[in-house]
Amino acid sequence: MRRTWPEEFNSILNNAEEVTIDLPPIEHEDGSRSEAISRKALKVRIAMEDYERIWPLAEMRYRLDGKRQGKAITLITTNPHYHRWHPADGGSVDNVADSGRHYTTKYLVVHFLLDDVRETAAA
């Protein structure tokens, strides 16, 4: 099934940084070892409020449009293979509203696996 990333959440990806996730080889119960894996990912610092809005999209693959057309992303949240890249504390920022009221915005650092999904078409 092809799902497209919801347009209403495009702004979350605006300041995403492309990074590489390196997974070390894993030793299996039978003594065999898997190879080390490198995966491209998007690293994003987002407000906790935005994270709560995109939480239902976690662990599902979504195709992107716009400048990242031909790519797909998957928000990492609970996958044990990617434990180091699960959502982590991104700090907080204290602000003052126009009304003079003080408030704090909490942030998380999240990672989206980034895959190339361009399809070739017969000419």
Results as ranks from 00 to 15, higher is better:
Glu7Asp: 09
Ser38Val: 06
Glu59Leu: 09
Arg68Lys: 00
Pro80His: 13
Gly100Trp: 03
Ile76Val: 14
Asp65Gly: 14
Arg45Phe: 09
Phe9Thr: 03
Glu35Gly: 06
Thr78Asp: 10
Arg68Cys: 00
Ala88Phe: 15
Ile54Pro: 13
Pro56Thr: 04
Thr77Ile: 15
Lys67Ala: 06
Glu119Ala: 06
Ala16Pro: 12
Pro56Ile: 02
Pro80Ile: 14
Leu64Phe: 00
Ser34Arg: 03
Leu114Pro: 10
Ser38Gln: 15
Met1Gly: 13
Ala41Thr: 10
Asp22Lys: 12
Ala47Gly: 13
Tyr107Cys: 04
Arg53Leu: 15
Ala58Ser: 15
Pro80Ala: 11
Val117Ile: 06
Trp85Pro: 09
Leu23Thr: 07
Leu13Lys: 07
Arg68Phe: 02
Phe112Lys: 03
Lys71Trp: 11
Ala97Asn: 08
Gly66Lys: 00
Leu113Gly: 01
Val96His: 02
Leu113Thr: 04
Ser34Ala: 05
Asn95Phe: 14
Asp30Gly: 06
Trp85Ala: 08
Ala16Glu: 04
Asp94Tyr: 01
Val110Lys: 07
His81Phe: 10
Gly90Gln: 12
Glu35Ile: 05
Val96Asn: 01
Val110Tyr: 10
His28Ile: 02
Ala97Ile: 01
Thr4Gln: 09
Trp55Cys: 07
Ser99Gln: 02
Asp50Trp: 10
Glu35Ala: 08
Leu108Glu: 12
Asn15Phe: 11
Asp22Ile: 06
Ile46Ser: 05
Ala41Leu: 05
Glu119Trp: 01
Thr120Gln: 00
Glu7Gln: 11
Pro6Thr: 01
His81Asn: 13
Ile37Phe: 08
